[in-house]
Amino acid sequence: MSEVVARLRTGYGAGLRHALLMILCLAVAGWVALRLADEATAGPMLLWFVGAVVSHDLILFPGYATVDRALRRAARGGGREVGPARSSLLNHVRIPALAAGILFLVFLPGILGLSEDTYRAATGQDRFPYVARWLAISGGLFLISATVWVIRLARWRQRSGQPVASGPG
């Protein structure tokens, strides 16, 4: 049996568990495709999916990769190393930014007012709170992240014997 697994790893490039998991994923994707084949809105769904993939790969990914590169360069601070505080800062910006971006995409129709009539018919309410709530949640996420970072920075400086009040750089 180990000879078969070794040949599989050599030919496939990964282990048996990986191959089985990929077969399972393909089976689930095939099942979903078969379910959607009878759906009347399968064409628009496919078009929306392809548009989302293309817009992510051509617009969003280069945009946030550029912003991340600029943040890494700014956190490096002229090339001097100051410990885990700099790299930790990046993650404390990345995580709330990712959460705010995902929330924006999920609630995009409500934020931009694209589904105002549908929303009003379903709930009887106006859509205007979407923008304010998204901004408040995003601001809260960044505030929580900044608070956690300051606490972690103070603890790190306390352990390393550096003065706490001097700031991150």
Score class of each variant (00 low, 15 high):
Arg76Ala: 14
Arg76Asn: 12
Arg76Glu: 15
Arg76Trp: 14
Gly77Pro: 02
Gly77Asn: 15
Gly78Arg: 08
Gly78Val: 10
Gly78Phe: 10
Gly78Trp: 15
Gly78Leu: 10
Gly78Thr: 05
Gly79Met: 03
Gly79Asn: 11
Gly79Ile: 08
Arg80Gln: 07
Arg80Lys: 04
Arg80Leu: 03
Glu81Pro: 03
Val82Ile: 13
Val82Phe: 08
Gly83Asp: 08
Gly83Ala: 10
Gly83Thr: 13
Pro84Gln: 06
Pro84Ser: 03
Pro84Leu: 13
Pro84Val: 13
Ala85Gly: 03
Ala85Trp: 01
Ala85Phe: 03
Ala85Tyr: 01
Arg86Tyr: 05
Arg86Val: 02
Ser87Ala: 00
Ser87Lys: 01
Ser87Thr: 00
Ser88Arg: 09
Ser88His: 08
Ser88Asp: 07
Ser88Trp: 04
Leu89Tyr: 15
Leu89Gly: 14
Leu89Asn: 13
Leu89Pro: 07
Leu89Ser: 09
Leu90Ser: 08
Leu90Met: 13
Leu90Glu: 13
Leu90Gly: 15
Leu90Cys: 07
Asn91Ile: 08
Asn91Phe: 12
Asn91Ala: 12
Asn91Gly: 15
His92Arg: 15
His92Asn: 13
Val93Asn: 15
Val93Ala: 13
Val93Phe: 10
Val93Gly: 10
Arg94Gly: 01
Arg94Ser: 06
Arg94His: 11
Arg94Glu: 12
Ile95Ser: 07
Pro96Tyr: 09
Pro96Glu: 12
Pro96Gln: 14
Ala97Val: 04
Ala97Phe: 11
Ala97Pro: 06
Ala97Asp: 09
Leu98Ser: 10
Leu98Trp: 14
Leu98Pro: 12
Leu98Phe: 10
Leu98Gln: 10
Ala99Asp: 05
Ala99Ile: 12
Ala99Phe: 05
Ala100Tyr: 10
Ala100Lys: 10
Ala100Phe: 05
Gly101Asn: 02
Gly101Phe: 03
Gly101Cys: 02
Gly101Lys: 01
Gly101Ile: 00
Ile102Phe: 04
Ile102His: 05
Ile102Asn: 10
Ile102Thr: 02
Ile102Gln: 02
Leu103Phe: 06
Leu103Asn: 08
Leu103Ser: 14
Phe104Lys: 01
Phe104Met: 00
Phe104Pro: 01
Phe104Gln: 04
Phe104Trp: 02
Leu105Asn: 00
Leu105Val: 03
Leu105Thr: 01
Val106Thr: 11
Val106Tyr: 12
Val106Gln: 02
Val106Asn: 05
Phe107Leu: 04
Phe107Arg: 00
Phe107Gln: 00
